[in-house]
């Protein structure tokens, strides 16, 4: 299905250029020339992404962004002549997902739009089920099994297992595990090894393979091939 992009810019030349570049890239484009008509076009078209100029006149792009954020999560890319860092920070604070400064090339705009759309989709649908070898993890029901045998895991062990299963071909650093499982941790990072060891023991006791293979000085890897999706 074709994604719809809403372009809100008071400059006719820029609006026409954005429309052409995005249409050529395969998007359906709807345009508006000011804040109120942009918000109306948003409600009428339910776009997948909004390209928004900041300098729109009476109702500027920041205000449009705030109003749109109050009613939805559609990704917003600011396209503006305001290039100062503080302007970008204000834009992100208002709810922008990305920020492109004029002058920009149409190719770069198309690339940014594609990236933000993909990122948004990834965030919408986090993976909740993982399979590797005899191991299966269901995040929603917080269950982990080795073949048909249910594992009795603590919250920490379960979260460690999910992080490894979610990164099956990577070494996950101790720091990443600390941040992902404990949120913040100011003590000895050997806490990871302690819980990883308990997790290994429980998986092994259920007839599973050795998981959580230590990579010296770096972190841990799952040690199993993930199931094909």
């Amino acid at each position: 299905m074709t994604d719809t992009i809403l372009s809100i810019d008071d400059d006719q030349d820029i609006r026409d250029l954005i429309s052409l570049a995005l249409t050529e890239a395969g998007y359906r484009v709807v345009s508006a020339s000011d804040g109120p008509s942009g918000i109306a076009a948003y409600h009428a078209n339910q776009p997948d992404l909004i390209v928004l100029d900041i300098g729109l006149g009476a109702m500027d792009g920041l205000e449009v962004c705030r109003q749109l954020r109050a009613v939805g999560t559609t990704p917003i890319v600011f396209v503006t002549s305001r290039a100062e860092e503080v302007d970008q920070l204000v834009g992100f604070a208002a709810g922008a997902d990305d920020y492109l400064t004029k002058p920009f090339s149409p190719r770069l705009l198309v690339a940014r739009v594609g990236t933000v759309l993909r990122r948004g989709r990834g965030a919408e649908q986090p993976k909740t089920r993982f399979e590797a070898g005899p191991l299966t993890v269901d995040v929603e029901s917080r269950s982990a099994t080795v073949d048909a045998t249910e594992l009795d895991l603590t919250r920490t062990e379960f979260d460690l297992l999910v992080m490894l299963m979610d990164n099956p071909r990577r070494v996950v650093s101790r720091q990443a595990l600390l941040e992902g499982v404990w949120g913040s941790w100011y003590g000895d990072d050997h806490v990871v090894e302690v819980h990883m060891s308990r997790l290994r023991t429980k998986v092994k006791a259920a007839g599973g393979p050795r998981i959580g293979v230590a990579v010296r000085g770096v972190g841990y890897k799952l040690g199993l091939e993930p199931a094909l999706e």
Binding site: D13, I14, G55, S81, R82, K102, P103
Partner: peptide
């Protein structure tokens, strides 16, 4: 100043 700012962006894009 505002118009020059806007034009700087538009002229550059073109």
């Amino acid at each position: 100043a505002g118009e020059a700012h806007r034009l700087a962006g538009t002229l550059g894009v073109f």
